[in-house]
Each structure stands twice: as structure tokens, then as C-alpha cells.
Simulated scan of single mutants.
Amino acid sequence: MELTGIESTVALVTGAAQGIGAAVAATLAGAGARVAAVDRNAEALATVVAKLEAEGRSAHAFTADVCDSEAVDVLVRRVEDELGPVGILVNAAGVLHTGRAVELSDRQWQETFSVNAGGVFNVSRAVARRMMDRRRGAIVTVASNAAGVPRVEMAAYAASKAASAQFTRCLGLELSDYGIRCNIVSPGSTDTPMLRSMLGEDPDPRRVIEGSQAAYRVGIPLRKLAQPSDVAEAVAYLVSDQAGHVTMHDLYVDGGAALHV
């Protein structure tokens, strides 16, 4: 199925320096979007954008910290001044701190929520205010299947992703009168630097795929990790015209790991 409605649209993608965010930026740019790639890691972001430009794609790097609401307002104004009105927003910036809830530090908890929930709020608010005047737009938040399924040693991450998912649903309800659609993509274990850092000294993905009874993890029924491109393709569908009657939906891309319960 060929996706339409993406070509020539300005797409602001946060967390675009690596992992799922980088894959989303590449997928949307490949579909003809003018991508505003955003990340606080300027060096890694420049590498991603340079690769897209070398492929003949339209991509532009904007360094910003999504936790800083004033910086986000400046960012969105600059993107629209330089590229045009933002028609697509993808909230893909995220951080992961693992550890048992009783052992998490204040800093770990606060940073997790500041990026994963606060960043979604800051960027969505800034972009939505402008979309409302134009009465069109599509917003997708990359959450996690951990938002709906408890995970051992992932309390901060799961709680922050649940917050971002529910915020996006509420935003979608409020913006429905303006023709703006807001959806969620919830990946499971995806082969990204974030997952590899979580695996630590034992990077074998089989223990994730097979699950662990001791950790109350059922494994992945499809018997493979997701690739960032799998998630990016789901995002691309939700921002396309083909999903024109889809809003406030949470699309799980986890190989069945959550069992959809």
C-alpha cells in the first residue's frame, strides 16, 4: 500500500539521532517529507541528517532539549520559519533508567519523566497550538508496550510511557474538533542502542525473545526482536492519509509480547 499525504509535509521528529527516532526520520524523508530532525546530541544528529542528505532526502538538523519548554517554543518557531508549517509531529525522544523501584534515585525518576512525559507535553503543546490555527495535522507519540504491561526493573520507564500515552489520547480528544489526529505507537523490544544498553554485559537477544518466568516476562511470540524500521513504518501509516479516520489509537508493535491484555 502506497502511503499518501506525507510528501512535501514538514515532519518534526524528536529523538532523531539514533534508534527509532532515526528510523522514523529516514522513513518519512523517504516518503517525501521535509524532516526537521531534533535531538540534544548534535554530533549524532548531524551524522543522521548527513546520511539522509547524501541519499537526496530533505532533512534538517535542529539541536534542542525537549525538557526545556522555552527552548522547544523557540525550536518550533524556527522550524516553521525555515521549513514551513509543521504538519506531522513524531515524539520519539526517550530515555531509559532500569532498576527496582525502591532503588531508583530521585535523579533517575525525574529525568525519565522529564524526557519521556515532559518532552512529549512540551513539544506537542508547542506544535498543536500552531496546528489548531490551520485545522489540520497528525501527531504520533512513541510510547512502549511497558506502558500497559508491568515490567520488572522498569517502573520509571513504564510509568512515564503510560503518562505520555494517556496524555496523547487526551490531546487527541481535545484536538478532534480541529481535524488533528493524535495516535500512539507502542513498541516492544526493538534492536536499538537503548535495548543493547539494557542488556548490559549479556547482549544475547534470545533471553528477551524467550522471556523469563522469574521476571514475569512472556517473551515474544513472533520469536524475533523488532527492527527500528518496523516501528517507523507503523508511525508512517498513522500520519498518512490512509489513517485519516484513526485517532486516539494505540498501535502495539511488539510481536505479540504484550498479549494485548
Rank of each mutant, 00 (worst) to 15 (best):
M1I: 12
L3P: 13
T4K: 08
T4N: 10
I6Y: 01
T9Y: 00
T9N: 13
T9S: 15
V10R: 04
T14E: 09
A17E: 03
A17T: 12
Q18M: 10
G19C: 09
G19D: 03
I20K: 07
V24Y: 04
A25S: 15
A26N: 06
A26I: 03
T27Q: 11
L28Y: 01
L28H: 05
A29E: 11
G32N: 07
R34Y: 00
A42R: 14
A42H: 12
E43G: 11
T47E: 14
V48T: 14
V49R: 02
A50R: 13
A50S: 15
A50E: 15
K51G: 14
A54N: 12
A54C: 07
E55L: 13
R57W: 01
S58D: 14
A59S: 10
T63F: 01
T63L: 08
D65F: 00
D68N: 13
D68G: 13
D68H: 11
D68Q: 11
S69T: 15
V74L: 10
L75V: 09
V76Y: 00
V76D: 05
V79H: 09
E80V: 08
L83F: 02
G84I: 02
P85S: 12
G87P: 07
I88E: 04
L89T: 08
V90G: 06
A93K: 07
V95I: 08
L96H: 12
H97W: 09
T98A: 11
G99D: 01
R100N: 06
R100H: 01
A101E: 14
V102I: 14
L104T: 07
D106C: 02
D106R: 15
D106T: 09
Q110T: 07
Q110F: 04
F113E: 01
S114C: 07
S114D: 11
V115T: 14
A117S: 15
G119V: 02
V120I: 02
F121W: 10
N122Y: 00
V123S: 05
S124A: 12
R125M: 03
R125W: 03
V127T: 12
M132A: 15
R134W: 00
G137F: 09
I139M: 11
V140Q: 06
A143L: 02
A143T: 10
S144R: 04
N145W: 00
A146N: 05
A146M: 08
V149W: 00
M154L: 15
M154W: 10
A155R: 05
A155H: 02
A155L: 06
A159S: 15
A159C: 09
S160I: 06
A162D: 09
S164F: 00
S164Q: 07
A165M: 11
Q166R: 15
R169H: 14
L171C: 01
G179F: 03
I180A: 08
V185S: 06
P187G: 10
G188Y: 02
G188L: 02
G188T: 08
T190C: 08
D191L: 04
P193G: 08
P193A: 03
P193I: 11
M198A: 13
G200I: 06
E201D: 15
E201Y: 01
D204H: 06
D204E: 09
I209T: 07
S212P: 13
Q213T: 09
Q213W: 00
R217F: 13
V218M: 02
G219K: 07
Q227L: 14
A232H: 00
A232K: 05
A236N: 05
A243G: 04
V246E: 13
M248Y: 00
H249L: 11
L251R: 04
V253F: 07
V253L: 08
D254P: 06
D254Y: 02
D254H: 04
A257Q: 11
